[in-house]
Design a protein around this nucleic acid. Sequence first.
DNA 1: CTTAATCTTAAAGTAAACTTTAAGTTATAA
DNA 2: TTATAACTTAAAGTTTACTTTAAGATTAAG
Lengths: 153, 153
Amino acid sequence: MTYSIGQVAKKLGLTTHTLRYYDKEGLLPSVHKSSSGLRVFTEKDLEWLIIIECLKGCGMSLKDIKHYIDMCMQGDETILERLEMFKKQKEHLVLQMQQLKEYMEKIDYKIAYYTEAAKRGSIDAVQYNKCLMKEKERIFGQTIKNLTEDDDN
Amino acid sequence: MTYSIGQVAKKLGLTTHTLRYYDKEGLLPSVHKSSSGLRVFTEKDLEWLIIIECLKGCGMSLKDIKHYIDMCMQGDETILERLEMFKKQKEHLVLQMQQLKEYMEKIDYKIAYYTEAAKRGSIDAVQYNKCLMKEKERIFGQTIKNLTEDDDN
DNA sequence: CTTAATCTTAAAGTAAACTTTAAGTTATAA
DNA sequence: TTATAACTTAAAGTTTACTTTAAGATTAAG
């Protein structure tokens, strides 16, 4: 089973322009051309693209992704470096997930805050909900305290 | 307790340039100026900046963040719109967290893959680890199947 | 056979979120 | 008092990851 550039674009939610751009940038070294010059994508190429998307989604730049692809092309001598790269990415991802959890706490607080404001009819009245105020202290107080601990004054 | 622009920059890991830029863009309407024209930041302003960072970290553009700030300045008539905004952000955040989990699966697979390659001394030899191959099928097979279901062919 | 898709190169354009430069003025801390 | 930090406006520059345009040539699908 093989795919045209248009089919792949559709599958992955990219444009054909973007795929050719990736190809030009050296991110798709495994994509072959048919005798008539058309790009032919295999399942393997889809896997590559899925990994590219994964690394991109983790915040890696195309330049660094290209470095990874280059290592893959180089062969077995880069196995350890590739392993290290993914270990570092994992650490990064763990931090990102932690970060998102903290954002979630703040957003949940804001939802509770504005729900209360809607119920009471005004922002000013929210302060009378002691429970919410305690929650606010917990979330922002802690964050600000962390900041204060971080600096050197 | 108040803070100078430099102290705030240090606390939040921004530059004074960035803070003035935010101010110019209307993201810091609550920051006052001293009689001599210096920006004076309060705890309240730190909270604003923490929320800005939160929304930015969730992927919201400065333009949309400004829209939120503008709503806050408008008063109680925007309470419901603000509530909706945070509810939408929460949904978005849930998807992001789900996404990161899927990335984590792929990265964990790659770590296992390269660990095995390192142990066996070559990429080619990894295929003999049936367990890993099954894992690969589970992770990529599923992702590709999802893609295939998504399109209209 | 015709239409839609693909190919090429090469260059210019875009958007976001800053960053830098310039160049002079004023304020605060040690 | 002196060095460091803050202030101003305004404009230009940077980076990333595309997107768009042009313009013709070729190919595949119905």
